[in-house]
Nucleic acid binder design. Structure first.
Lengths: 229, 229, 229, 229
DNA sequence: AATGAATGAGACTTCATTCAT
DNA sequence: TATGAATGAAGTCTCATTCAT
């Protein structure tokens, strides 16, 4: 479309591959894997049915490419911004918000995973597995640093912490898509981050102080009242 | 499955719907929705192809019945045991372990959901949605009680707490299936429960707060009583 | 339903057969042969699916019975009334009107004929063929009488006259069902009858011809008689 | 059918739609709509099962195409020849003969109409209805001209005349197929045409003359015979 | 490299008919 | 005689994939 004429052959080919992936992403994200046909994707890509097969071996392969692309973009954009943030809390908060917004926008893309991974065993060594590992490594590094600096709870095993972090968002994203109340996202992120971070000492101290005040006040009232007797 | 071989024909017929659901569950759980054929299910059920359609309108309907059945068994067995447990911690721990073991045993059953729910909108009012709501209500009740008694963190909004609880397990179950190290399940449950429960210190604070409540109430009563004097 | 309790076994059976035929007629006449299912017919009849097969060998046989019944009622009611009418014109007019109204009310019943008669050859000797022959015989008799008396054109071969008479109405009934203008029926009948009846002038010629016949016959007899002398 | 055997592959492809229609016509015309399967048609066409569905949405659509094609050929060939004939009688005679021969050769094609037209209402505005309208318009034009010139009876409403003309042939064609006596067709056409045309004055005169002759002859014979007495 | 018509395996589904009860 | 669940052959139709052009 808006391609300069000076593209090399190689660039052209790459552009076409991207075009197909984008078309596929859009349709997969609307209809899901099963109800999407290769013909639809070809049409949306502006190429012939057979052309899709020059770039992708079959439908599963194309779906895999879409997910790969999704993870790559997700990983790149996340890492880039994380590097610019200094505190652990900022980083975790950004990562949560970034993950949620992306996953909610294209949640059907990730839902395709079961459809193209026949068995759990083969997933272990697959490229998709590596991709996911690579993505969550961003969180892992933040968590590791945070634990060392005391900002993040060190009571949790790293992999458990990670599963809680991403699992909560996967489930939460569905809940929020159903309710479609945008303000919930902020609440959710705040609470999730709060759960992951070490509880600040002062909060605890404040709470204790308040209760002490209340206890003292009550004691005083009782003393006064009983004094009459 | 769990049917004795000595069933008479009549008994078989009465359980035919169950038989088909069981057969379908087994095959769906091995091959996934897409790669399972109705012919396979019929064969495994020991009935003719057409017979399946006497009980279920079509493949989607059958898959829905399998999931419905799964949720019902999950809800019933969970509720039954929860009622026998007294402390919040015991209940939450049991629920987590129960959920994990069931979901891990039949995780492909739940993975069918995307394949049979075309769009999020229609899911909202569907029977499956109600089923899920009904199931998570078990946790909701435990959480509500726990928050009142101070056993569970009251700093989290109920729906967020629930999403964290179930989301963590959904994600964690996949991780653990990949690693297939059974001892991880105990670790995972312990840490998840620990995260949901109030920490000992804040439990102390909650307890203090409760005492403050009681003292304040007593003070009020005494004040009222002595005022008359 | 409204059956007296004193029905004999035989009567009961006959009643059930009628009930099924009536139900079948109604549904065939709405959906046509192909889109009607035996289950629908059984339901409408108030009997079980299998029961229909106690009375009729199969779907074709049932359809045949419906058509047979239709023809019998058509033939009986037509013959009965025709016998009460005296002039040829009255008879032909009645027959046309009677045929049209019945065929238009249940035209899909006759449309089933192609579906159940695979080949023309076998139709020739079939019971349905005889039934039709029996029915059109009513017209044939009227036509024969009418030709002798000069009321009906004798320029036409009997079978051609019959085909014109019934064919016109078959085609015309469809046209009129499409237009659904009731007054057209009267017009149509009048014109068809007019076409079949001798015009006044040719009636005269016919009469003359008849007299010629009689005279020629007389001449022959006289010649024979006088030849002996 | 009428395709030379030396067609190249490319040419075959270009005529694939026609090829399928021809194959379908042949099988529909032998087995009828219901007993014809798409697989048979595909085989007879020399294409794969799925290919038929590239050209026709489903079985009904294909049957409709066959009928459409039939009507188009019928209309074209009729109109072409009619234009070359000068007198009304010649035209009507040709049209009758042409209609009869075509309908008799492929009468099962037209018999499919009830099977694919569920209800009369929807037929009104359908393409098939237009097609039929277009075809009978040929007769309508001839009839209109003939009425003006006095060649055709003007005592009949045009649509009634048309229904009589085509209806007679539809019915008559079945009768004649049963009897399979080719000479009947000529008789039938002559009588049908005679019925539609105005009766020539001379015919009436001739008839009268003939009867007069007969009466005179008979009288003479009787006189001779009685003279002996 | 691109096309898109053709393929054909195989899926889902219907429904006339049977038969154990 | 009546039932109606079960049958399974047969049918329609889809769509991922191929391959001649």
């Amino acid at each position: 479309m808006s391609m300069p004429k000076t593209k090399t052959r190689r660039e052209k080919v790459e552009h076409r591959e991207e075009t197909i992936i984008e078309a596929a992403r859009e349709i997969f994200n609307h209809r899901g894997y099963r109800k999407t046909t290769m013909a639809e994707i070809a049409k949306q890509s502006g190429v012939a049915d057979g052309t899709v097969y020059l770039y992708f071996k079959n439908k599963e392969d194309l779906a895999r490419a879409v997910i790969t692309d999704f993870y790559r973009r997700l990983t790149d954009s996340a890492q880039q911004r994380v590097d610019q943030l200094s505190t652990t809390k900022e980083r975790v908060t950004f990562l949560a918000r970034h993950h949620l917004s992306n996953v909610m926008a294209e949640f059907k893309i990730l839902e395709m995973l079961p459809a193209i991974n026949v068995n759990m065993e083969s997933y272990g060594g697959s490229a998709l597995f590596d991709l996911n590992k690579n993505y969550v490594a961003i969180f892992d590094r933040i968590a590791k640093d945070g634990m060392q600096s005391g900002a993040i709870k060190s009571s949790l095993t790293p992999w458990v912490l990670r599963d809680i972090f991403y699992g909560s968002m996967e489930y939460g994203s569905r809940t929020m898509l159903l309710k479609s109340r945008p303000e919930d996202i902020d609440d959710f992120v705040d609470q999730l981050v709060g759960m992951v971070m070490s509880s600040p000492k002062s909060a605890k101290a404040n709470l204790d102080a308040t209760i002490a005040d209340r206890l003292e006040l009550a004691a005083t009232r009782i003393e006064k009242a009983t004094a009459k007797l």
